[in-house]
Each structure stands twice: as C-alpha cells, then as structure tokens.
Design a protein around this nucleic acid. Structure first.
Lengths: 136, 136
DNA sequence: CAGCATCCAAGACGATACTG
DNA sequence: CAGTATCGTCTTGGATGCTG
C-alpha cells in the first residue's frame, strides 16, 4: 500500500523531561488530527444521517478519489468510529455506519463546524488582508 | 521559503454541478484543517492563558522545530487568530497573543479536546484491536 | 461494485547555517 | 532573540490498471 494507516506526523518525540503540561497531549493530538482531515469530517457528516454504501459516499463527497475514500474509511474504522458491513451478494455491497463513538464525535465536530461557518467571513477577510500586505 | 502559507490540500476541486449539500463546505474545511494541525492546537492552547514570546512557546511545546513554530504562528496570524507584536529592543522581543477571534475558537477546540481526552482510551483500544486483526 | 497495487508528482517537515 | 534560506528526506494523494 502506498500510504500508511498510521500517519507519522502525529507521533511525538518524547520530551527529555516530561513537561506536566503536556503529559496527555500526545494522544489527544492524534485524535484531533483525524478531525482536521477534511475527508474524515465529510465522511462523518455524510454518515450522520444513516448508513451509506461506498460509491454512495463517493458520489456525495464531490472530488474525493477512490483511494482517499478507502483510506479515510479505514482510518475511521480503525479508530472505532465507523463500522464496515459486508453483504456477500453479487455484486458485492458494503455499508458504512457510524458507531456510537462516531456519533458522539460528530457533535463537537459539528459545533466546531458551526463556529467555522459563522466566522468564515472574518477569517477569509483576515487572510486576504494578510496576503495583500505581504504578497507584494 | 520552503513551504507555502496556503496549503494545497485544503483547496477543493469545484464540482461539475454544485451539490447544494456542499455549497459552503469548501471554506469550512480550510478552517477545520487549521484546527487539525497539531501545532496550531498546541499554540492556541499555550496562548489561551496570556501572551507569550517566541522562544517561550518553543520551550513549552516540546518537540516543535523553529521552522514549524514560525510557520504555525504565521498561519494563525494570517487567519486573524493571533497577533504579533514586535518590541524594537535589543535583543529583539516578539509577543504573540490570541485575538478575540482566536479566543472564540479556543472554546470549541477545547470542547473537542475534552472529547478526545475522554474517549482516548476507547479509541486507542479500537486501534490496537484493529491493528492486531490486520497486522498479521 | 468495492477495493488493492503501483507509479509518480507535489508538498510537508526537520536539520543546518546564516542574519539584524 | 527571533527569525530567514536552503537542502534533503519522507509523506501525501491523484491516476491508472487489475481483481473477486
């Protein structure tokens, strides 16, 4: 496989002398980075109103490649946020569904999504202001 | 500079025919990906109890390289979440501080952080279970 | 239909060296 | 102290072609 299910950039270098402030940050970061993954967020949102099939998701999430959808679903499955159910029919059918854990996560995620939506204009304004000052 | 302030992977391919479901997702994703960035989260958390200097942050966030701290701070500044104040003293001194926007963001972020902390054990259990089933 | 394997380009990141 | 510049390495992710 071309890409690992355990991304490297969320692993942490152990501090020489552990700073009490960050004792448990290592693990938290790895959870947050799943949320930061744009595809994961979309998949979670798409699944929040019931189970979906692979190609169904692919169609709903415009622009995702098959590879990334597979990878994203595996990641979510690995984290126990999504279940994968295979129906041994012909043609094969696979349903993806949020677990209880996944449904729990989707709440704070949507809170954050709401914040993002509400402040998107401000942020984009800040960005173009910043860019204009610095581009040239 | 080696790395852009505007990461490519958060840009979206425009849908052939815009799906009403995703009309405003493009922008939201770019905000979420800032949150998903582990360094950004740590910086925001470190700054949530008052302004800090560059090397002060560097020491608090164990394992971050100078380069990444600079890049992260620039990203946060660009998004209007952090202000950068230069004191033209010798040696130079630069303070970073959360803006109102930044403080607003830190709330849902901490809610998510709390969720992550509360369910970390479950997630890590799910991960090792999944890995054990599939590794071999 | 669902998905794995392979190839390849673009980008992210760390290490190092240098500056006002 | 607080950066910038540059280099080399690793990861990411799209495209394509092949299977049960």
């Amino acid at each position: 496989m071309g890409t690992s299910l355990r991304p490297a950039h969320i692993d942490f270098p152990a501090p020489a002398r552990p700073d009490p402030n960050h004792a448990d940050c290592r693990g938290v970061a790895s959870v947050l980075s799943r949320v930061g993954d744009k595809w994961s967020v979309f998949v979670i949102m798409m699944l929040s109103d019931g189970p979906k099939r692979f190609n169904e998701l692919k169609r709903m999430i415009n622009g995702i490649s098959q590879r990334m959808l597979t990878l994203t679903l595996r990641g979510l499955e690995r984290d126990g946020l999504v279940t994968r159910t295979i129906f041994p029919t012909i043609p094969p059918r696979v349903d993806y569904e949020l677990t209880d854990l996944g449904r729990g996560l989707s709440q704070p995620v949507e809170a954050l999504g709401k914040w993002a939506k509400d402040h998107l204009v401000q942020i984009e304004a800040a960005r173009s202001q910043f860019d204009e000052r610095n581009d040239r």
